[in-house]
């Protein structure tokens, strides 16, 4: 019991501290690749600090949903982060919610965020909510297929079990099913975290923005919670990618040395994946909204191929 509480506290603080850093790393890497200096990897912390200190302006047309949304977004993301293995294969709350709970809890956060967007009554909020729900709805089946592929080869939907079974098999990470599922989930990651080519996290041009349009009216600590929630969600999806497909170095016990290797390899893998995300963001242009379904159809077929491959290869 005490061990669980301690591990919850440790993983929670890791997630809260690491998620802004990952976002900062991605931003800086991207800037460097575009031969800009960039704001530095600590910028997200400064932003959080600044936003948390400020007062906030609540739009006069908003109801309590507007205020509830940031809290729900933040708490669902934080809860989900406790269900996935990060450094050790045993996640603190893995028993209480597997991969389906992860997907649906993130869905709960999105549900409230979209309502928060609609609550203000501005056209922007509605526009952002509508697009966000459309894209996430189309990304969902691809995500599920990719996840089913992993779950079926591990015979479990519990992420700790999945990681354990992945550690036990040599060369598994080379199996086509794993590679295809990884590719499908990577496209989903791009779509769900609102990155180019699906959405542009840096734009405030009304015709192209999705996520930013939805949260246009938020300010101060509410905005900080939403941003933080989004960073945690990004970290969750990235961890899901690296630790279920490439569980190298995940610690299987609580030995200090193993935890240290786990920590180091986790950070290294995160860095690699961030670099991959940056590469994709830099080499692609944002596609039109109605071309996004094409991308997600590709992800869906990749997921289906992955599933067929587990079945035959």
């Amino acid at each position: 019991m005490i061990a669980t509480v301690v591990s919850i506290a440790l993983q929670l603080s890791l997630v809260l501290l690491l998620s802004p850093l990952v976002s900062g790393i991605i931003k800086t890497l991207k800037a460097r690749l575009q031969t800009r200096r960039g704001p530095g990897i600590l910028q997200p912390y400064r932003e959080l600090h600044k936003l948390l200190r400020k007062g906030m302006v609540i739009p006069e047309s908003a109801s309590w949903i507007f205020s509830a949304a940031p809290i729900v977004v933040f708490s669902t993301a934080a809860l989900v982060s406790l269900m996935i293995p990060m450094i050790s294969a045993a996640a603190p709350l893995s028993l209480f919610g597997g991969v389906l709970a992860v997907v649906y809890l993130l869905g709960l956060g999105r549900f409230f965020l979209a309502l928060g967007g609609l609550d203000t009554g501005t056209p922007f909020g509605g526009l952002g909510s509508s697009r966000e729900m459309t894209i996430s709805a189309l990304a969902e089946p691809a995500m599920m297929l990719a996840i089913f592929t992993v779950a079926l080869s591990a015979n479990s939907t519990n992420l700790s079990e999945v990681a354990h079974s992945a550690i036990g098999q040599s060369w598994r990470f080379l199996a086509p099913s794993q590679v295809l599922a990884f590719a499908a989930l990577f496209i989903v990651l791009i779509a769900e975290t609102g990155r180019i080519p699906v959405d542009n996290p840096a734009t405030h041009l009304e015709l192209t923005m999705i996520h930013e349009a939805m949260i246009l009216e938020y300010s101060g600590p509410y905005l900080a919670l939403i941003e933080w929630g989004a960073w945690i969600k990004q970290l969750i999806l990235m961890t899901l990618l690296i630790n279920t497909f490439y569980p190298f170095g995940l610690s299987t016990d609580m030995g200090l040395l193993n935890l240290a290797t786990g920590c180091a390899s986790y950070l290294l893998k995160l860095l690699f994946l961030s670099a991959l995300v940056v590469l994709v963001e830099t080499t692609n242009a944002k596609i039109r909204l109605f071309r996004v379904p094409e991308l997600l159809a590709v992800a869906f077929v990749l997921g289906a191929l992955a599933l067929i491959s587990t079945f035959l290869f």
Partner: peptide, 20 residues
């Protein structure tokens, strides 16, 4: 599993519909 993924699509569309 394909039926399962289509169930996921249904669930996500239902969420979109109830947001609306």
């Amino acid at each position: 599993p394909i039926a399962g993924s289509l169930l996921a699509l249904t669930g996500a569309l239902a969420a979109a519909c109830f947001v609306k």
